[in-house]
Design a protein around this nucleic acid. Structure first.
Length: 596
RNA sequence: GCGCCCUUAGCUCAGUUGGAUAGAGCGUUGGUUUCCGGAGCCAGAGGCCAGAGGUUCGAAUCCUCUAGGGCGCACCA
């Protein structure tokens, strides 16, 4: 049960009773919103309903609020209610309500926070999808983190989630990969290769692949024509690159349910049949594009006949090509087929996590998906801005051309997976932000993820100590929780209760930072309560002379630990029972990320 | 030139879909160890929410314009 929903239910009933009192026939008043006040003086829950409805009903807001309050009181006799300010209704639940709530949390354990809000709808989420032309790098990190956490959150919210990686293994880029690999192959056979030509992939990671191919084939391909070795080298290089990428993903604790191949889509004829579908709907024609606006008026421009999709019918600026002049399919064409394929696999929601640099591509794809699925499916595309990597205020530039990019491996080596996840997730995905290496390495002690981990470890420590000191049986059905009456304790429980609806909120907005921010705040309340135990013995968790109180406190700590652990798991961070695994500053690895 | 996104404390960012006195961390100033882990806690300073209009009981949030930054604008994926 989500507490907020429960309260909303009660409020709804109270409003209906109040309407009768005011002699109003039913009027459409919209949703009754419950909010959790920022200030605790404003109670556990609040609603602005009276403010919103007063005009329609012709009753002053405070009067209306008073009537509603009386009705709520009759439904929940032991709640404390008040009218505040211009007409807010503040609701404060009795201590016993919160005390009993921790039993719910402890009982649910790892399931606490899960709901069936998503009704087991099938969601497909596609993310990372880096080209199979090299290892993952800093440009992929945000999509990886956001996609993975959103997947976790959606699962918690009761969706059936399929994590999918789309491999762009057709087209020009993988051909360039094949050519680059061929050069490394010749190099491994003793030939001196000056420089990897402009436009090919110069990265060192292909050296090993070249050597492996010599092991596999010997000098067999040295003097053969291009069209014989290209397919071989393409396949072998792609699988080598995917092995690298999968290794990167494994280190981030990201596992995909499915890797889909663009090439397979084409060879299986799925692209052709998707285009047929669009043709049936009269959305494809052969025509010419207008002159691009980015060209100057005196630039050369020869219009060409192309196969086009009528994306202008859906608000796009121009119609978009499905085939190139030479008759080859465009990436767009196979992307339509790919999304159609996902739809045909019975996914009800299609989510894509993209870099902001693909923003211009959204209108054409979403219009194509709407068209081909007859509006049964709307693709949801979440873009995230690039992460700017800085050290000491200086930006670390990357250049694919020069091969000077920061790999994900470098980043993991320097700051660790948990730090990456938490740091990236804490920012809302559509803002630009600086990932400052100094801030997360030199001062790693102050890093938010350790703060949260420390709270979890502290809770674990209390539970260990309690088990050593007392023989506590937490399975006994009767607890006296009345000693949990301090405002700090009740406030902590209240915050724990927010977890479930924040998971839902995060799953609606597709925003991981809602969870990581929450974990930080919850941890802060716990650390604060802990320290209050220094001054006030009654707040100490373990009270050697008072078993009854200790049991209550231990349950509180257990509940707290449960919520933090669940939240960390959502954030793809493994909860720690001790802090030993954290990297001390002096043992941190040497800086492997150099200024370009 | 056109389109999308962004602008909140010195720095990095929140702000519960229009609510109550705009909040955290870092940095800074001061305090805090008899103790279940001090990687913690408590207090202070720091704001014209980029700027100007508008919408209404009420705006950081919605609309218009302006300034600054990011991204995109051919058949490359």
């Amino acid at each position: 049960m989500i507490v907020k929903d429960h309260i909303q239910h009660i409020l709804k009933e109270a409003v209906q009773l109040a309407m009768a009192t005011h002699d109003q026939s039913f009027i459409e008043l919209g949703d009754i919103e419950i909010e959790i006040p920022k200030k605790e003086e404003h109670g556990d829950f609040a609603t602005n309903f009276a403010l919103k409805a007063s005009k329609k009903l012709g009753v002053p807001p405070r009067d209306l609020a008073q009537t509603i309050i009386e009705k709520i009181q009759s439904l929940v006799p032991d709640a404390t209610l008040s009218v505040a300010g211009p007409g807010f209704i503040n609701i404060k639940m009795p201590s016993s309500f919160w005390q009993n709530y921790i039993l719910d949390i402890v009982k649910q354990g790892q399931s606490f926070g899960k709901t069936d809000y998503g009704q087991h709808k099938s969601v497909n989420i596609e993310f990372v999808s880096g080209n199979p032309t090299g290892p993952l790098h800093i440009g992929h990190v945000r999509g990886a983190v956001i996609g993975q956490i959103i997947s976790n959150i959606l699962e918690y919210s009761g969706y059936d989630v399929t994590r999918e990686y789309y491999i762009n293994d057709a087209g020009l880029q993988v051909e360039k990969l094949a050519r680059s690999t061929y050069l490394r192959y010749r190099e491994a056979l003793g030939e001196h290769i000056e420089d990897i030509p402009e436009g090919l992939y110069p990265g060192d990671y292909l050296i090993q692949v070249g050597q492996d191919l010599v092991q596999k084939y010997g000098s067999k391909w040295l003097d053969t024509p291009e069209d014989e070795w290209i397919p071989i080298f393409r396949e072998d290089a792609i699988s080598a690159m995917m092995a690298l990428i999968k290794k990167d993903l494994k280190e981030l604790d990201i596992y995909f349910d499915l890797f889909s191949s663009e090439k397979a889509l084409i060879t299986e004829g799925k692209v052709d049949s998707a285009l047929d579908e669009l043709l049936k709907r009269d959305l494809i024609y052969t025509g010419t594009l207008p002159k691009p606006q980015s060209l100057q008026s005196n630039d050369d421009w020869t219009p060409e006949e192309l196969l086009l999709f009528r994306s202008t019918q859906f608000g796009d600026e121009i119609d978009r090509p499905l085939k190139k002049v030479d008759g080859q399919l465009t990436y767009f064409a196979s992307d339509i087929a790919y999304h159609y394929d996902k739809f045909m696999r019975n996914h009800e929601r299609l989510i894509n996590i993209w870099g902001a640099d693909h923003g211009g591509y959204i209108p054409r794809l979403s219009s194509a998906v709407s068209a081909i699925t007859d509006n049964k499916c709307q693709v949801e595309i979440k873009t995230c801005q690039m992460v700017k990597l800085t050290r000491g205020g200086e930006e670390i530039k990357m250049s694919k051309r020069a091969g000077t990019f920061v790999t994900l491996q470098d980043l993991i080596g320097e700051v660790g997976k948990d730090v990456i996840f938490f740091t990236v997730a804490t920012k809302s995905s559509n803002t630009q932000f600086n990932f400052d290496l100094d801030a997360v390495t030199k001062q790693s002690m102050d890093n938010p993820v350790y703060y949260v981990q420390y709270a979890h470890a502290r809770a674990s420590s209390v539970l260990r100590k309690a088990a050593d000191t007392f023989d506590i049986d937490l399975s006994s059905p009767d607890y006296d929780l009345r000693s949990l009456k301090d405002p700090q304790e009740l406030s902590l429980i209240r915050k724990m209760s927010h977890f479930t609806h924040l998971i839902q909120l995060a799953s609606e907005k597709l925003e991981p930072h809602i969870i990581t921010d929450y974990l930080y705040e919850l941890s802060s309340s716990f650390h604060s309560l802990w320290n209050s135990g220094k001054k006030n013995d009654e707040l100490r968790f373990i009270q050697e002379e008072n078993l009854e109180n200790t049991v209550a406190k231990v349950l509180l700590v257990k509940a707290f630990q449960t919520v933090i652990a669940n939240g960390l798991r959502c954030s793809n961070v493994v909860p720690m029972d001790t802090m030993e695994r954290a990297i001390p500053v002096e043992d941190a690895p040497e800086n492997s990320i150099k200024q370009a």
